[in-house]
Design a protein around this nucleic acid. Structure first.
Lengths: 335, 335
DNA sequence: CACAGAAATGTAAGCGCTTCCAACGGCGCT
DNA sequence: AGCGCCGTTGGAAGCGCTTACATTTCTGTG
């Protein structure tokens, strides 16, 4: 029966048992130079026998650092953030540090939680629209190393983002190449800077192609249901659009379903595209924009590490490239 | 420019500034009873002014606990684990504690990392086939509160799992109801206890239905590619199976693609089912077994909390129910 | 008005570790 | 033999906080 009250073995017991001082134990288990090889071996053996694990808290207090990094994201339900977190965790763990996570979705006290998290880590990544600029600024002002991810820059904080505008241009141009004329954009530019960028690229491509730009985007939230509703409404208008550029895959998937329910064939009567290249996009044959989430996460992790270790060159901003994934929803392609 | 070297404000400075002792500051910021209301207000104001945040490390050391829980999982790339983690994070955060994560996939030093994690938390959840029984036992023996998730029990550790056998029986029986006779199971029972349970239920249902049980399952790994390969091979045999029960959605999705490539219509010429009800399953119209991952995670979190607070009733084992999600891949349904 | 007891606050002892500094002993050298 | 050095080791001071215990300040009462 596991004893709930078993006291973990401390450095004192190891020192006692090994017949040395705690200073020597500490040294034997970490530095190299300052201890005689024979002593080190002896201490190591004793430590192992006793199954000694240095208390993290004691260490953190003495060293003044946690050996842990944080990451804040909206949620983990889409594949998007999960991938980013995974890429992040991978490199952080490789660096010998632990990862603390915080999902802000649906929490009204997000800012408070982020501050709390800030107190437990040596640095953190803040992703997307999770907390206000002022919260970010406040934490940055604390001196805590920070990296922003898929989020507009704040002050002089490092920022990594995936490209939005260029890829929007690319995907829209691709659709134009298919010969469509009447376009609509599904998504709310006001909702997130990502969508804003995508919409801007969409508008730019249309303009460059000499096509008429719809008066305004069809506003809708970031999920399947919203995409469905928005598409349904749009597709029932007297002059139906020929192509829908959707703000992300979930919206596109909703639109796809709407088209289906309306008896519209895709891409025959309606072409559409998404963003993110989530797994379901593949099965829906959705043409979309692929971003390497993993890489986004790992890049942020590396930058953060450099900030923490003070080896960071000035302020960094980087836009990671994306890739157009052509499937069938955008129109017929011979293959 | 954010100063990297800004020293965080300590309780001493607050005490100084407020003209009281650190004990009073500590009390004013936490307990209720032991401090005069006016003093409390005053201290709180000063603390706020100074933007004082008690050092987590100091606190952890003094209190002997971390106010953090851990969770170990294979990876986060499928929707499966991500959802579980989300459910976990949600309740843990609600309890005012932080969440440390650890992905073991592709790491050879998983056991070491888990031990390391164990030193930073007050309890943890270990999911799936991430570490050996002996590692689990060793940690449990430490007295660290533990909950196992979707993993066979070890010793007297609490364990939550999702049902496998019963749902396998249900899904197989459903297929039998469609009138199919030749079945195959895609997945490797040796790979995980989950698959083993699913296969067992499959066999049981077939036996109960008086049908011939295939000599052995078609072994394949847990991903789309493996499912594709396994299905392709199976479907080219002279006597093609009519129905494929796949170990999870990814395998089923691979099988679906294989059928498609082979010119077989689903469900016309081949019926198939998956497990997990991932998002893509919906778009592929895949009949599958839905498990509430979120709930799995939140249940584990709650149990763990009770273990930590010592309010846990004896050893707990629970199998969470699943739900059959009927779409079209299993055969025609009028609706 | 003195005094007991409660309320409020201060003092100080840790929590487990790292690390600066001092102490020690053995060595080669003169 | 005496000296200084260097390689090892121990002593002890924190790191920032909580909390048991001591002390002080009030309050109400006989």
């Amino acid at each position: 029966m596991p004893a709930r009250d078993r006291r973990p073995v401390t450095i004192y017991e190891v020192a006692d048992r090994a017949g040395v001082s705690i200073a020597t134990v500490s040294r034997a288990l970490r530095d190299s130079e300052l201890v005689a090889p024979s002593t080190r071996r002896h201490v190591q053996r004793v430590a192992e026998e006793l199954r000694f694990r240095p208390s993290r808290a004691g260490r953190a207090l003495a060293e003044g650092q946690h050996a842990a990094n944080g990451i804040v994201f909206p949620d983990l339900s889409g594949p998007y953030y999960a991938e980013v977190v995974l890429g992040y965790e991978e490199v952080v763990a490789e660096l010998g540090r632990s990862v603390l996570i915080l999902a802000t979705q649906g929490r009204d006290n997000a800012a408070e939680l982020v501050h709390e998290l800030a107190g437990r880590v040596d640095g953190m990544v803040i992703m997307g629209r999770t907390v206000s600029d002022s919260t970010v600024a406040r934490i940055a002002d604390t001196g805590l190393p920070l990296v922003l991810l898929a989020r507009p820059p704040v002050g002089l904080v490092d920022t990594v983002t995936a490209d939005n505008e260029d890829s929007a241009r690319t995907v829209t141009a691709h659709l134009i190449g298919h010969g469509y004329h009447r376009f609509e954009f599904l998504g709310d530019p006001a909702q997130s800077p990502d969508v804003a960028g995508r919409h801007a690229g969409f508008v730019a491509a249309l303009t460059e192609g000499g096509l008429t730009v719809p008066a305004k985007p069809v506003r809708c939230a970031f999920d399947v249901k919203a995409g469905y509703a928005a598409a349904r409404e749009t597709l029932r208008r007297r002059t139906r659009p020929e192509a829908l550029v959707c703000a992300n895959d979930e919206v596109a998937l909703g639109a796809l379903r709407a088209a289906e329910d309306l008896g519209l064939s895709v891409p025959g009567e309606l072409a559409l595209t998404g963003w993110d290249d989530i797994m379901a996009a593949d099965y829906a044959r959705l043409t979309t924009v692929h971003q390497s989430m993993r890489e986004l996460g790992s890049t942020a992790a590396r930058w953060l590490d450099q900030r923490i270790s003070g080896t960071s060159p000035g302020v960094r901003r980087e836009v990671l490239p994306t890739r157009l994934v052509i499937r069938t929803s955008c129109g017929p392609h011979e293959r």
